Amino acid sequence: MTTKEIVQQVIDAFDNNDVEKILSFFADDVKWTMKGSSVTFMNGKNEVEQFLGGMEDVKMVSSTKEHIIVEGNTVAVDGLVQCKDKNGKDMAMYYADIYELENDKVKKVTSYIVDKKE
């Protein structure tokens, strides 16, 4: 698989709330930084799994991919994600994710998240 195909598989897994599939593409020592109204830093597959496990009540409604830009082993993706929380409340966020791969595994993710204002 190409770098772009690997990241597209990861994105599809996120769209389908498939934590096991997401983790299968991540390196054991993955580092994931989420930047937005606060900063969340995850170090290692176990921390990512705990974080994603805590998101089980959030259901993906739709997501767009405005751009998928590949440069070597780095892929940048941006768009809009719409979800519902456990109370059925709608949430919408613009995102930009930068994936860095090493040996066909996601080694580093940097996510920028901005709540969509009505």
Rank of each mutant, 00 (worst) to 15 (best):
S63G: 13
V70S: 13
V10L: 08
D15Y: 07
I11K: 12
K59T: 15
Y99T: 01
V75L: 09
I11F: 11
Q82F: 04
D115L: 08
K59E: 10
A92M: 12
K105G: 02
G44T: 01
S62K: 14
K84M: 11
T64I: 09
D28E: 12
D15M: 09
A13V: 05
N103W: 10
S38C: 04
T33E: 02
T40F: 00
D85T: 10
K86V: 12
I11W: 05
K45F: 00
S62M: 10
K31D: 04
D90M: 14
E100P: 06
A76K: 13
D12P: 05
L101H: 06
D97T: 07
E118G: 03
E102C: 05
E56Y: 03
Y95T: 08
E56V: 12
V106A: 08
F14A: 07
V7S: 04
V30W: 01
G88Y: 03
N16M: 08
V7F: 08
L23V: 05
E118T: 11
M93Y: 15
K116P: 09
M60H: 13
Y94Q: 07
S63K: 14
T33I: 03
K4T: 15
V81S: 10
T2Q: 11
D29Y: 02
S24M: 09
I22A: 07
D15C: 06
D104N: 11
M91S: 10
V30R: 01
G54Q: 06
Y95N: 02
F51A: 01
T3R: 04
I6C: 11
N43M: 02
Y95R: 06
G54I: 02
V48E: 03
M93N: 15
G44S: 03
F25Y: 14
D15H: 13
L80H: 06
G88F: 04
E71L: 11
F25A: 13
I6S: 09
N43A: 01
E102K: 14
I6T: 15
M93D: 10
M1L: 09
F26A: 12
D97P: 07
S38K: 13
I11M: 14
M1W: 07
I98V: 15
K21Q: 13
N16C: 11
V19S: 06
N16S: 12
H67G: 02
V77W: 03
M34I: 08
I11Y: 07
G72M: 02
D18N: 15
V109P: 00
K65H: 14
D97V: 04
K45L: 01
T64Y: 08
I68L: 14
N17I: 09
